[in-house]
């Protein structure tokens, strides 16, 4: 053959090359399928035991005087009220601070200030939750909560835990809110300034309303995160493995997550007999469904503002 005589297959690549293409595609596709497998495993590992639990449990025991899994008393309102208190307090801390930080960073801070401040916020975001738990128990509870409220439980309570969870979620609120604020087109700000509005008016009447779906998303994601936070409440919530129903946030409280951790903590795996073991999966399922619902909702809102601008 002469050099000028090209075979068309050579242009399409050697069979080996093409085979490798197929192999690679198969590998990366199966990697993507692993995420589906994960979801299936999560739902499976939760659902199987949870369904068995709900069919075996005496339903009247789900509305009783407290959470005593080893005695067969599984009062859900004890866990739900504690979860709501902790989440509410966390949001009272995280939303104003996180949103203000986001407004400052997006609307006021100079480029140089942003360069310093944002990484510091990100460092705060990286602090492990056990550390916040320790901080809430050893600093926030004695120095803040107990000095305001004399009857606050000194071995931990829902207020301290809530503040700890709140601190943990500030960076999350700040980062999602800032994304939402900075995706508001500059044209809106310029138009507002052009007709003589002050910075304050522009921020509160133009930018914030324009970013509202993103800000709501930030709030929802943070709520979901606070509901799912375990270690802060486990360490600083003050409740032992069981809890009587308590509606006062200055008392010790057992959230859904802390109840799960308590069933497991200090033991080598979770052994516990029968229903106590099942309750772990039942509470886990509720937690899974609630947080997933919130996340899907937030996801829709985020995509909404992405579409708008």
């Amino acid at each position: 053959m002469t050099a000028t005589n090209w075979d068309i297959t050579e242009l399409q690549g050697s069979p080996r090359r093409q085979q490798r293409e197929k192999r690679v595609q198969a590998v990366v596709f199966s990697a993507a399928l692993v995420s589906i497998l994960l979801s299936v495993m999560i739902v499976g590992s939760l659902g199987f035991e949870a369904i068995r639990y709900i069919t075996e449990v005496d339903l009247s025991r789900l509305w009783d005087r407290g959470w005593f899994p080893r005695n067969g008393v599984f009062d859900l309102k004890t866990l739900i009220v504690a979860t709501l208190w902790v989440t509410l307090i966390a949001m009272v801390v995280a939303v104003p601070l996180g949103l203000s930080a986001a407004i400052y960073l997006s609307e006021y801070a100079s480029v140089r200030a942003r360069k310093v401040l944002k990484p510091v916020l990100e460092v705060l975001a990286g602090i492990p939750s056990v550390v916040l738990g320790f901080f809430a128990l050893r600093f926030i509870n004695p120095n803040l909560v107990e000095s305001w409220l004399e009857n606050a439980n000194s071995s931990g309570n829902m207020i301290s835990a809530g503040i700890g969870v709140g601190i943990l979620t500030i960076p999350l609120v700040a980062s999602i809110s800032e994304d939402a604020l900075s995706s508001v087109p500059n044209a809106l700000r310029e138009a507002s300034a052009g007709i003589g509005a002050r910075k304050l008016t522009t921020t509160t009447s133009i930018v914030l309303p324009a970013a509202i779906s993103g800000l709501v998303a930030a709030f929802i994601v943070a709520t979901s995160r606070a509901i799912g936070e375990t270690m802060v409440v486990f360490i600083a919530g003050g409740a032992a493995d069981t809890a009587l129903f308590a509606s006062n946030p200055a008392d010790q409280g057992l959230t859904m997550t802390a109840a799960m951790a308590s069933l497991a903590a200090g033991s080598d795996e979770v052994v516990g007999s029968g229903l106590a073991y099942g309750s772990l999966f039942f509470v886990g399922s509720i937690l899974f469904l609630v947080t997933m619902g919130l996340n899907v909702l937030a996801d829709r809102l985020v995509r909404k503002y992405r579409l708008e601008y």
Binding site: R65, F68, N153, S155, A239, A240, D241, T242, Q252, G266
Partner: peptide, 20 residues
């Protein structure tokens, strides 16, 4: 009675008792 705080960790029990 079942309606009391319980814990497998004796140290947590002491913490709770000493606070009240």
């Amino acid at each position: 009675r079942f309606d009391y705080q319980s814990s497998a960790n004796d140290n947590i029990i002491i913490n709770n008792i000493s606070s009240d």
